[in-house]
Simulated scan of single mutants.
Amino acid sequence: MESMATRFSDADIVATLNRMDVRTGQDKTWTAHRVASIRRVRRIHAFRSAEKDGAWLTMREAAAKLGVTSHVVRRMIQDGILPAEQVVPGAPWQIQAEDLENDDIIKALRQKGRPRHTVSRDQLPMFPDT
Results as ranks from 00 to 15, higher is better:
M1S: 15
E2N: 14
S3E: 15
T6L: 15
S9V: 02
D10H: 09
I13W: 05
V14R: 12
L17H: 07
V22L: 12
R23M: 12
Q26D: 14
A32I: 12
A32V: 11
R34S: 13
A36S: 04
S37E: 12
S37I: 08
I38V: 10
I38N: 06
R42Y: 09
R42H: 09
F47C: 14
A50I: 06
E51H: 13
E51W: 09
K52E: 12
W56S: 05
W56C: 03
M59E: 12
E61Y: 06
A62R: 03
A62W: 06
A63P: 08
A63Q: 01
K65L: 13
K65P: 00
K65D: 04
L66Q: 01
G67N: 07
S70G: 14
R74A: 15
R75H: 14
M76K: 00
I77D: 10
G80E: 09
I81M: 10
P83R: 13
P83Y: 12
V87P: 01
V88M: 05
V88H: 12
P89G: 00
A91H: 01
E101G: 11
N102T: 11
N102D: 13
K107I: 11
L109R: 15
Q111M: 02
K112F: 11
R116T: 03
T118F: 10
V119F: 11
V119Y: 09
S120G: 05
Q123G: 01
L124D: 05
L124T: 06
